[in-house]
Amino acid sequence: MNLVTVSGPPSSGKTAVILKTIDSVQKRGLKVGVVKFDCLYTDDDILYEKAGVKVKKGLSGSLCPDHYFVSNIEEVTQWGLKEGLDLLITESAGLCNRCSPYIKTVTAVCVIDNLSGINTPKKIGPMLKTADIVIITKGDIVSQAEREVFASRVNTVNPGATIMHVNGLTGQGAYELSTLLYDDKVEVKTLVGEKLRFSMPSALCSYCLGETRIGESYQMGNVRKIDLGDKK
């Protein structure tokens, strides 16, 4: 089984791109499944199911969705193996701009869209900077120049990545993407012992633990203070 992690800002087109890509992968006779990770709510599982794709979803609730992802990715991998999948894709909404669910040996795809503004690439952080493949969507509604400028910003932030344009509506570019996602020489059996590309900060402060009162005396653990420039 091959494993691919797809992440990206909310509504960037992850599901649309994955669905179109799965179309091409299935035509090659490969069995694909998806696990969607989100925070509070998602409908994506219904979309995948409609397309006849094996799907599971996991909601992290009050936890950082990326922390939740790592805590569960091995179980999810075993599910995929049990289902006899050739390709397992995880979709996670990049809600935490600091963390990213990328694992060193697993193909990491980041989906961002042309409408998000040219300063987005520098804001997204590790999810974009450390991806292997960056997919840019919604090129059908912006001008050629804006597409070129956006792609060049993405390239500056992550010069090592493969950058592709995929249209989530028409599927243009999805076949091409599919050729990069499955390699029959790769065989994932377990992720135990594999490593994240980056450590995820624990961010454990008193508020993580249920504190509701405001004020310095209630703050413990990993607390950071804003720099308002009036330090003596």
């Binding site: 509604i141 001008s143 070129e148 060049s152 993405v154 950058i163």
Partner: peptide, 18 residues
């Protein structure tokens, strides 16, 4: 795979400046 070197530029009716 070279993003700075795309073979095709596209112009269509529903493209807008954003």
């Amino acid at each position: 795979l070279n993003s700075g070197n795309k073979l095709v530029a596209q112009l269509s009716q529903n493209m807008n400046f954003v």
